[in-house]
């Protein structure tokens, strides 16, 4: 399993979200040009899983792309993606507020 989420970007529109189901997992917002601007997690408190979380970004007017990974280990994978991003950019994604992030460690992925 790749430590990075490097699937192709998909436009974040209600139409494109029809292919996303309500499973639990992690997602990234961003684009080829800007890279990853937000890392999110659809945890078990969400009413409609990944579909619902991404739809909330559409409703908020976000004009970006997304990619997802369905996983039951959504908590640890979410933290891993944030740590990998920090290791590679020395910062967290632009739209992740540090005050809302969980306690994170340090990774130095090869």
């Amino acid at each position: 399993m790749s430590i990075r989420l490097d699937k192709p970007w998909i436009p974040l529109t209600s139409e494109d979200l029809k292919q996303v189901k309500g499973q639990l997992g992690v997602y990234q917002l961003g684009s080829e040009k800007d890279g990853v601007t937000y890392i999110g997690c659809a945890d078990a408190r969400t009413l409609f899983g990944l579909k619902g979380e991404l739809q909330s970004h559409v409703d908020a007017g976000a004009e970006v792309f997304f990619r997802i990974e369905v996983t039951s280990a959504y908590q640890t994978r979410y933290r891993e993606l944030l740590m990998v991003h920090f290791a590679e950019h020395q910062c967290y994604p632009r739209d992740n507020k540090e005050s809302e992030l969980p306690r994170l460690g340090r990774l130095s992925p090869g």
């Binding site: 908590q75 640890t76 933290r79 891993e80 460690g105 990774l107 130095s108």
Partner: peptide
């Protein structure tokens, strides 16, 4: 000293 990756397991806590 390098922490190369998180190992995802059945466990939710303290990965």
């Amino acid at each position: 000293f390098h922490v190369r990756r998180v190992i995802h397991t059945l466990r939710s806590a303290h990965y």
